[in-house]
Design a protein around this nucleic acid. Structure first.
Lengths: 195, 195
DNA sequence: GCCTGCAGCCTAATGGCATTAGTTGACGTT
DNA sequence: AACGTCAACTAATGCCATTAGGCTGCAGGC
């Protein structure tokens, strides 16, 4: 009786694709199962066969985010070192985060603790920063602090940029270049002081 | 018939107090009208006499946040200049944001556009950073970029700190001191290059 | 070629939350 | 004493997430 609806043929991957698209387009908070189901031409409960509810969808987006960012950073840093590596790393970080604001937001809004897969993806991304900054500091103990400083700057910038947190309309590119220069100045000063 | 409940005697301020308390304690996402009403010993619809729904409550928290942060920064910077002012500003920023994670999150999660009161409070807070950094750059056009770099670093750090975004358990105080040193090195390098 | 299982989607039902409309009762004013 | 105001209420609606259980059509065994 009912018209034989075409079977969408979903799987976890296609659901995640759609979830990432929604989050990137309209913000992480716009991701709901209702919206996701509508976008996929399916009823809400059907999604439970592919992801573990709303939390599962969010987690999937976060995992995509961490992996995508990690890959972008790795690609940018390979074959480079020193200031050149930092500049390319920073550029890749910003480019990726601004292109995927929803997935990027997901990485900060989901709890990494108690989820080995998420933590592994996170570690894989941060590792790149460690590797690049070892050029200025070989002691792992102290290196942690350099990594935190650089990560904070990058993280803060992309968040402010994609959240329209910067009031003025001066060039964001110029600002970002200056921010990178600040990091390099800080790194050099740190290395010089430790001599 | 019904037991004569004591009249709570609410007003916008007391509702905002409770909203800030909830957001600071359990995160910005934990703020709901249901929770707020329960905390105040009142039914949900009654809140509409004091705040404009959930969005209104969120906005009130954001406004508190911007004003509180602005005041903290102003207090820290008064009577200081140069590196000393930057250090105190940074310390105050971090201290305030970590003490009020919910209100701080509110400031980034609510839209400032189309809300003059929020924008004014925001401007009042950022003004302090402008004033302090003018020590290194007098041209307002270029100053914007310095302010953005420093804001990004501070913003990123406090977000990572209160969101447990730093994996390792090395001292956060040491990391933050280093981050501030990076900013000072960047500022000095910038001023030197512009000579 | 039939039947049997299961994978994939469905409908129905529950409960939480936000929101609006309309009601009640205490209090100060006249 | 009557009145109006105002703060809180109850009732009702609608959206969303979640769970339980039912239908269907394709795969593999007989």
């Amino acid at each position: 009786m009912a018209p034989p609806r075409p079977r969408p043929g979903l799987d976890a991957e296609r659901v995640t694709d759609a979830a990432v698209a929604i989050a990137d387009a309209d913000g992480f908070d716009a991701l709901s199962l209702a919206r996701l189901a509508a976008e996929l031409g399916v009823r809400t409960p059907s999604l439970y066969h592919h992801v573990a509810g709303l939390d599962g969808a969010r987690r999937a987006v976060a995992l995509r985010g961490l992996r995508g960012l990690g890959t972008a950073l790795r690609t940018a840093a390979v074959g480079r070192s020193g200031p050149d590596a930092v500049r390319e790393l920073a550029r890749a970080y910003r480019t990726w985060a601004v292109a995927h604001p929803g997935a990027y937001a997901a990485t900060q809004r989901t709890d990494l603790a108690k989820d080995d897969e998420l933590r592994a993806a996170f570690a894989r991304a941060v590792e790149v920063v460690f590797a690049v900054l070892r050029h200025w500091e070989q002691d792992e103990e102290r290196l942690v602090h350099l990594v935190r400083a650089v990560r904070s700057a990058l993280h803060g910038f992309v968040l402010l940029e994609s959240g329209r947190g910067f009031g003025m309309d001066a060039s964001l590119d110029v600002s970002f270049d200056l921010l990178v220069a600040f990091q390099l100045a800080g790194l050099d000063a740190h290395a010089a002081a430790r001599r």
